Simulated scan of single mutants.
Amino acid sequence: MDIAENAVLVVVDVQKGFEEEDYWGTRNHPEADDNIAALIDVWQTTGRPVVFVRHDSVKPDSPLRVGYEGNGFKDYVERRRGRGAGAELLVTKSVNSAFLGAPDLHAWLTAEGAGQIVVAGIQTNMCAETTARMGGNLGYDVVFAFDATYTFGLEGPFGWRLSAEELARATAVSLHGGGFARVVTTKEIVAAAA
Rank of each mutant, 00 (worst) to 15 (best):
L39A: 08
V58I: 14
V50I: 11
A32R: 01
P63D: 04
S62G: 10
V58G: 10
P103T: 10
T26N: 11
E21Y: 06
Y140A: 14
G113M: 05
A191P: 00
I189P: 09
H176Q: 15
A37S: 14
Q15N: 08
A191V: 12
V8P: 04
A168D: 09
R48N: 08
A128G: 03
T46H: 05
H176M: 04
N6Y: 11
V184N: 01
P30L: 13
E129Y: 02
W43I: 08
K93S: 07
R182P: 04
T151F: 13
A170Q: 10
L39Y: 05
L100G: 00
V14F: 02
G179R: 05
R133Q: 04
L105D: 03
R161H: 12
Y23E: 07
D22F: 08
W108K: 10
L100I: 02
I117T: 15
I117C: 12
R182G: 02
T131Q: 09
E129R: 14
E166F: 01
P60H: 03
H29P: 00
V51M: 09
Y76C: 13
T171K: 03
W108I: 08
F73N: 03
E31A: 15
R27Y: 08
T110W: 07
V10C: 07
A114E: 05
L100Q: 11
F180I: 01
L175H: 06
K74N: 09
G113A: 06
G86V: 11
I122D: 04
D41K: 13
V190Y: 02
T110K: 14
L109D: 09
L9R: 03
E69P: 00
V184Q: 05
G136D: 04
L9E: 00
Q116F: 11
F152P: 13
L90C: 05
T92E: 10
G136M: 07
D141I: 04
A98I: 07
E112H: 09
A132G: 12
P157L: 09
V58C: 10
P49R: 00
G101R: 03
R83T: 15
L154Q: 12
G101N: 03
V184R: 04
G135D: 06
T151W: 09
G72M: 10
V183C: 10
P63N: 02
V119N: 07
Y76S: 05
F52C: 06
A4H: 06
A128Q: 01
A38C: 06
R81K: 14
N35S: 05
I189T: 05
F144L: 05
A148G: 11
V119C: 05
V53H: 09
G86H: 07
V51R: 05
G156R: 02
A145C: 10
E31Q: 15
V53C: 06
P157T: 11
F158N: 11
F144K: 02
I3A: 02
E165T: 02
A38H: 00
V119R: 07
T130M: 13
